[in-house]
């Protein structure tokens, strides 16, 4: 453990550098304009809410900002009864 730590401790600076480069490329992109991903999330949820009664605590939103692409994941639980209702119409 201690030996492993000794090796691991070398070079935390490159990690810091990489994290900063990724973070700042995002922060610079959204500077002066509202956050695109937040806007997407809000509008997607609004569209879903038009057709389905969405409970806000049943919506999971995760975001992973990567270097080249970001992943915005929105999981909305749709009750089965809605599907049945739509089929009946």
């Amino acid at each position: 453990m201690s030996l492993l730590n000794l090796f691991r401790r070398r070079g935390s600076a490159p990690v810091a550098r990489e994290r900063l480069q990724i973070l700042l490329s995002h922060e610079r992109a959204v500077r002066g304009q509202s956050d695109l991903l937040t806007k997407l999330k809000d509008e997607i949820l609004a569209v879903v809410a038009k057709h389905v009664n969405v409970e806000h605590d049943q919506v999971q939103v995760t975001l992973d900002r990567g270097e080249k692409v970001s992943l915005l994941e929105i999981n909305v639980e749709v009750p089965n009864s809605v599907g049945a209702l739509a089929a009946a119409q």
Partner: peptide, 12 residues
């Protein structure tokens, strides 16, 4: 390699 160096900071 324990601290960001000058080049790192200036590059960023």
């Amino acid at each position: 390699g324990e601290m960001l160096n000058i080049k790192d900071v200036l590059d960023i």
